[in-house]
Structure formats: structure tokens, C-alpha cells
Amino acid sequence: MHRFKDLDIWKLSRKFCSQIYITTANFPDNEKFGLTNQLRRASVSVPSNIAEGCSRSSNKDFSRFLEIAIGSIYEIETQLLIASDLGYISQVKVDELIYDLDKITKMISKFRSTLQI
């Protein structure tokens, strides 16, 4: 088992989640149950799956949770692009957030490759 609070991927994804909450606070009220909710839930999913995976007794199980976290990252990227298409967020902000997502994805992928499965 791993201590999730010690993992840089967990720390960074938790910080990213806060960025999503701040960003979506400016979305229109009519998106409260749409993109705002979807982005927030997907962003919470990333550090949550990393933490849950740490509790598993096998690296194979942990790796699966990391894979789910990466899936949530792709979901976030898609939703950010849609939010940009709708004019809810600037392209500059989307690019910044996607840069952070790419960094997290690479870190998770590299970490997964070190697990002895």
C-alpha cells in the first residue's frame, strides 16, 4: 500500500481540483447542473481515485484506479473545450488548465509504469 498524501500526483491533482472549482464559479447559473457539475465531479474523481487506489492490496488494483483517474482527466479536457466553445472560459485559461492536466497525466502514467504488476 502507498500513502496517498505523500504522492505528488495526488497533491497536484488535488490542487487542480481547486482550480476547477474556482474556474467554474464564473460559469452561468444555468450550467449549475450541466458543465459546472460535470467538471467538478470529474476533477474530484482524479485525486479520489488515486487515494482509493492506494488502499488496495495489489499493485494491479492500484494501477486500475490510476487508469480511471486518467479517464477522468480526458473527460475534464473534453468538458473544458466545450466550455470554451460556449464562451464560458477563455482559450488562454483552457490552455493553462490542459497544460496542468497533461503534466498530471504524464506523472500518473510514469508512476503506473513503476508499479510491479
Rank of each mutant, 00 (worst) to 15 (best):
Phe65Lys: 06
Asp102Ser: 13
Ala25Asn: 12
Ile68Asn: 02
Ser72Trp: 02
Leu80Lys: 03
Glu96Leu: 07
Glu75Thr: 05
Gly87Met: 10
Gln79Val: 02
Thr24Lys: 01
Gly53Gln: 06
Leu35Lys: 00
Lys60Tyr: 10
Leu86Tyr: 12
Thr24Cys: 07
Asn26Asp: 13
Met1Gln: 12
Thr114Phe: 09
Lys32Gly: 00
Ser48Ala: 15
Val94Lys: 02
Ile50Cys: 04
Arg56Cys: 10
Glu77Thr: 11
Ile20Gly: 06
Arg3Asn: 15
Met1Ile: 06
Arg41Asn: 08
Leu12Ala: 11
Asp6Asn: 15
His2Ala: 07
Ser72Tyr: 02
Arg14Ala: 12
Gln79Asp: 08
Asp6Tyr: 03
Leu115Ile: 15
Pro47Glu: 07
Tyr99Gly: 03
Arg40Met: 05
Phe4Leu: 08
Ile104Gly: 02
Asn59Asp: 11
Asp95His: 14
Ile50Val: 11
Pro28Asp: 00
Phe16Pro: 05
Leu66Thr: 06
Val44His: 03
Gln79Asn: 11
Ala51Phe: 07
Ala69Ile: 01
Phe4His: 15
Thr24Met: 05
Asn59Ile: 01
Ile98Asp: 08
Leu12Gln: 14
Gly53Arg: 07
Lys93Trp: 01
Ser63His: 14
Ser72Gly: 02
Val92Lys: 15
Leu35Met: 09
Glu67Leu: 05
Asp29Lys: 13
Glu31Gly: 09
Cys54Met: 08
Arg14Asp: 15
Arg64Glu: 02
Thr114Asp: 08
Glu75Pro: 02
Asp95Phe: 09
Leu101Arg: 05
Ala51Met: 12
Ile70Gly: 04
Ser58Tyr: 13
Arg14Gln: 15
Phe16His: 11
Ser109Leu: 14
Ser113Ile: 00
Pro28His: 06
Met1Asp: 04
Leu86Lys: 13
Thr78Val: 03
Ile73Gly: 00
Ser63Leu: 12
Ile22Pro: 00
Glu52Leu: 06
Pro47Asn: 07
Ser72Ala: 09
Phe4Ala: 12
Gln116Val: 14
Lys60Ser: 05
Leu97Ser: 03
Val46Met: 03
Ala69Glu: 10
Asn59Ser: 08
Gly53Ile: 06
Arg40Tyr: 01
Gln91His: 12
Phe27Ile: 07
Lys11Asn: 01
Leu7Trp: 04
Ala69Asp: 09
Arg41Met: 06
Ser13His: 05
Ile117His: 15
Tyr88Asn: 03
Ile104Val: 12
Glu67Ser: 13
Ile117Asn: 15
Ile98Ala: 06
Gln79Phe: 06
Leu66Arg: 01
Arg14His: 15
Glu75Tyr: 03
Phe16Val: 08
Phe16Arg: 12
Cys54His: 05
Thr36Arg: 13
Thr105Leu: 10
Asp85Trp: 00
Ser43Asn: 10
Asn49Pro: 09
Lys106Asp: 13
Glu67Asp: 14
Ile73Arg: 01
Glu31Leu: 11
Thr36Leu: 08
Leu86Ile: 11
